[in-house]
Simulated scan of single mutants.
Amino acid sequence: MSSETVGSEKRSRVRVPRGDRRRAEIAAVAEQVFLKHGFTETTMRLVAVEAGASTETVYRHFGSKDDLFIEVVGNRTLELRQRIDTDLESTGPLPTVLKAVGTNLYESMVMPEMSALARIIVAEVSRNPALGEAFYAMCPGRTLHKLTEYLKDAQARSTFIGDDPELAANMFIGLIIGNIVPVRLFIPHRDDVGTERMQGHVDEAVRIFLAVYHAKA
């Protein structure tokens, strides 16, 4: 193997700083602790024990239990947010983009970990409104904003004919997850909203939306 090849291989390896790697490991353990014990019963000491770290180390990476939980939610939703960003940056036809966004939203809501974290937030939000605000800004609010901006651009291209892009974005999101959210929050053992029904659900939501808002060719 040539020295040039060896050098290329070394450059292709992305080294994660040890501190960042340990932070990610603790957050991954913390997710399981939160899912098992809920927010109130989870302590930084318990997370430290499960992660094989000192309590001081956990506090050094995360200043509070709130910060740790928000990071857990951020990690869990990161892939979804990235996929939706990619969907809404597409220059493809409106029906194709909406189908991709709808599929990603549906898939996220039927993920057991996602709905379990949402139930924790619902249970805690009356005592700790900041958790709800952080989650909304990170996920539902962000998705609404991104979709609204996309529809504004589509409006400028005359492919979206609604007068209120934000209202239309709200309506589309509601069509996708309106029934899934209460089912996953309150009766998660039901299996009739699984991925096997996803395609038909998303297709129908897109069809209804386009019937009102899509410019006819």
Rank of each mutant, 00 (worst) to 15 (best):
E124A: 13
V122G: 03
G162C: 06
A168Q: 06
L117E: 08
S115H: 13
P129K: 07
L131K: 03
L147D: 06
N170A: 06
F160W: 05
R127M: 06
P140C: 07
K146G: 00
Q155P: 01
A137P: 00
E149R: 15
Q155C: 02
G162A: 04
E166S: 11
E166N: 10
E166C: 06
L144W: 03
K152P: 00
K146V: 01
D163Y: 02
M138A: 12
G132C: 05
F160P: 03
F135I: 01
I120F: 06
M138Y: 03
N170P: 00
T159D: 07
G132V: 06
R142K: 13
L144A: 11
D164M: 02
F172T: 08
I173G: 04
F160R: 03
D164A: 04
G174P: 02
D163N: 10
A137M: 09
E107L: 15
A137G: 14
M114E: 09
F135C: 00
K152T: 07
E149D: 09
R142S: 15
E166I: 00
D163L: 11
L147W: 10
V125L: 09
P165C: 08
D164E: 07
R157W: 00
L151M: 08
A168F: 08
A154W: 05
G141H: 08
A123K: 15
G141Q: 09
S158K: 14
A168E: 04
N128R: 15
R127W: 01
R127C: 02
R127F: 03
N170K: 13
L167R: 11
T143N: 04
M138D: 11
K146C: 03
Y150D: 01
S108E: 13
F135P: 00
V110N: 03
P140A: 12
V122W: 10
R142W: 15
S158R: 14
S126Y: 05
S108L: 06
E149H: 14
A116I: 05
A118P: 00
R119V: 05
P140T: 12
I161H: 01
L167M: 11
M109I: 06
L147P: 07
A116P: 03
L144G: 04
P140I: 08
S158H: 15
E133S: 09
E133W: 03
N128W: 00
P112N: 02
F135A: 12
R119D: 05
E149V: 13
E166F: 10
Q155N: 05
S115Q: 08
I121M: 13
T159I: 12
M111Y: 05
E133D: 11
R127D: 14
L131E: 07
F160I: 03
M114S: 14
D153H: 13
L117Y: 05
A123V: 04
A118S: 14
R142Y: 15
I161G: 00
E107M: 12
A118G: 09
A130L: 12
S108V: 09
P165N: 06
D153F: 11
F160H: 04
T159E: 12
E113P: 01
V122M: 13
L151W: 11
T148K: 07
T143D: 02
H145T: 12
I120M: 10
R119M: 04
E113M: 03
I120N: 08
S115M: 09
I173F: 02
A130E: 14
I173C: 11
A130R: 14
T159P: 01
E107V: 12
I120A: 07
G132T: 04
E124M: 06
E124Y: 01
N128D: 12
E133R: 10
I161Y: 00
